[in-house]
């Protein structure tokens, strides 16, 4: 009797200490957002045209536009929090952001950490960008060669392990492009959607995307685990975007050729 009492008191004290430290509110996140009046969204700020900065410092692009739609639906203002691949899921777990739309590939192991909404809103595969002069034709050609990548991207591991490339991982795309020009690596392994946008510029006229795209994987936007209502609402929003052709429209607005995935989804939900 006495021991259970002590145990209970210890438990209560521990719970109290826990509550005092850092936990986000237990209420539904949609209520929190409405009470706060702001939707906090994690987006990329170095991934043109999906999320990048304009000269005033504001973050713009396809994903910020999608996030704005969500904020409009909820009737709140929006706040963009710039993230990189290596910290985006932690921000969502910690409750620092409410929603994650940051070019994240939908992977089973990520679904255990964050709550990815269905269906997927976008898709891209993995490919390399490399000088035409190297004449790569297969992924196996990269064996033993230095290949640039972005820290936290899942395909670094795969390119390294399955194809034997030596991955040199950088923090952002700007550093990778400089390293490519300086000849520090023979290729840049990244999303093909990014390569398509980059290769359109004259600066990269001597470069190509020669390999077959692998791992064509959908992108997932995510909310924190356990936020069922927000998760379902996002699912409906994504279907709405596909139905209305919003994604295709945004691709055109930001100068990207319409991707087969966006076209297929539009046809499917139309």
């Amino acid at each position: 009797m006495f021991t259970t009492m002590t145990k209970r008191m210890a438990m209560a004290a521990a719970m109290g200490a826990l509550a005092l430290t850092a936990l986000p509110a237990q209420a539904d996140v949609i209520d929190d957002i409405k009470a706060r009046g702001t939707l906090r969204v994690a987006v990329k700020a170095d991934y043109k045209p999906y999320g990048f900065r304009d000269t005033s410092g504001a973050i713009i692009g396809i994903e910020p536009d999608l996030a704005q739609d969500v904020a409009d639906k909820l009737g709140v203002s929006i706040e963009f929090i710039p993230v990189v691949s290596s910290n985006r899921m932690q921000f969502l777990q910690q409750g620092k952001v409410d929603l994650l739309i940051a070019t994240m590939t939908d992977k089973p192991d990520r679904r255990k950490v964050v709550f990815i909404a269905d269906p997927n809103y976008y898709s891209s595969g993995t490919n390399i960008m490399t000088p035409k002069s190297f004449g790569f034709t297969a992924w196996e050609d990269l064996r033993g060669k230095p290949v640039c990548g972005i820290q936290g991207a899942f395909y670094n591991k795969k390119t390294g392990r399955e194809f034997g490339a030596k991955i040199v991982a950088f923090k952002g795309t700007a550093e990778v492009y400089a390293a490519m020009k300086a000849g520090n690596c023979v290729a840049f392994v990244y999303d093909d959607s990014s390569h398509v946008a980059t290769l359109e510029q004259d600066e990269w006229a001597d470069y190509e995307m020669p390999l077959p795209t692998i791992d064509d994987a959908p992108w997932g936007l995510a909310v924190a685990l356990g936020e069922d209502r927000f998760h379902d609402m996002m699912g409906e929003m994504i279907i709405g975007w596909h139905k209305s052709g919003r994604i295709l429209e945004l691709e055109t607005k930001w100068g990207v050729a319409n991707t087969p995935f966006a076209q297929d989804m539009h046809d499917k939900y139309k």
Binding site: D46, K48, R53, D54, V83, E175, M180, A182, E203
Partner: peptide, 22 residues
């Protein structure tokens, strides 16, 4: 390095916004 949007972070993002012009 720890993600504060100070001048170095912004410069990296600006370079990305300019399309990786080396």
């Amino acid at each position: 390095i720890v993600g504060v949007s100070e001048v170095m972070t912004l410069t990296g993002q600006i370079l990305a916004a300019e399309g990786g012009r080396s």
